[in-house]
């Protein structure tokens, strides 16, 4: 592709326009939208889109907006700020949804850190059957089956889902603190 042609094809937008466009798309996206997808839709370079979205997030931050742009589950999302949760809840007339039980949270923690992991391996760590918890986590789509392990009985392996990242506010799995870090807290 000649340079001349590239110039014609590439929509000429000012950085400010690009930030505004990114804001519009992040607003309408149902799920966290990736910089890659934004770049495709806008026919822009991935780097300039990335810069625009980061600039947008900073803008919201600096003017102490009621909204925030944040990176979650590999994409970007617009949401209300935690500080206003009481007022937002009052308006929406919603209450915090039922939390996971201690057993389910433990099971989820084992799956998050040891994935892909099988049911017997979870039992080994927790010292208790986890079938009910696994069902709850599957129903809530926090975990997904990740194929069978090539071992005796070919047990099913489980791992965390994209919904897990979203519901626990994680950019990706690497954002989880290392399991060894918890060792210091123990004892």
């Amino acid at each position: 592709m000649s340079e001349e042609l590239q110039d014609i094809q590439k929509p000429s937008r000012t950085p400010a326009e690009l930030v505004a466009l990114v804001e519009a798309l992040v607003f309408v996206a149902d799920e966290p939208i990736t910089a890659k997808l934004l770049a495709e839709v806008l026919e822009e370079e991935r780097e300039s889109v990335q810069a625009a979205i980061e600039e947008l997030a900073r803008e919201y931050e600096s003017r102490e907006s009621g909204l925030q742009i944040r990176e979650i589950a590999g994409g970007w999302q617009i949401s209300t700020r935690t500080e206003f949760h009481e007022e937002v809840r009052k308006f929406l007339k919603t209450r915090p949804s039922a939390k996971l039980s201690l057993a389910s949270l433990e099971t989820l923690a084992v799956i998050a850190y040891k994935q892909p992991v099988t049911v017997p391996e979870i039992l080994e760590i927790r010292g208790v059957q986890s079938a009910t918890s696994i069902k709850t986590l599957l129903d809530k789509r926090l975990i997904v089956a990740k194929g069978r392990k090539e071992a005796v009985g070919r047990p099913m392996q489980y791992g965390t889902s994209k919904d897990f990242l979203i519901q626990f506010g994680l950019k990706d799995l690497s954002e989880l603190p290392s399991i060894e870090d918890f060792e210091d807290l123990v004892s």
Binding site: E106, A112, I125, R126, F182, E183, V186, S187
Partner: peptide, 14 residues
């Protein structure tokens, strides 16, 4: 000790 790490991790998730 191994279990307690995951118990603490569960608290973090919570």
């Amino acid at each position: 000790l191994e279990y307690e790490k995951f118990k603490t991790a569960a608290g973090m998730l919570h």
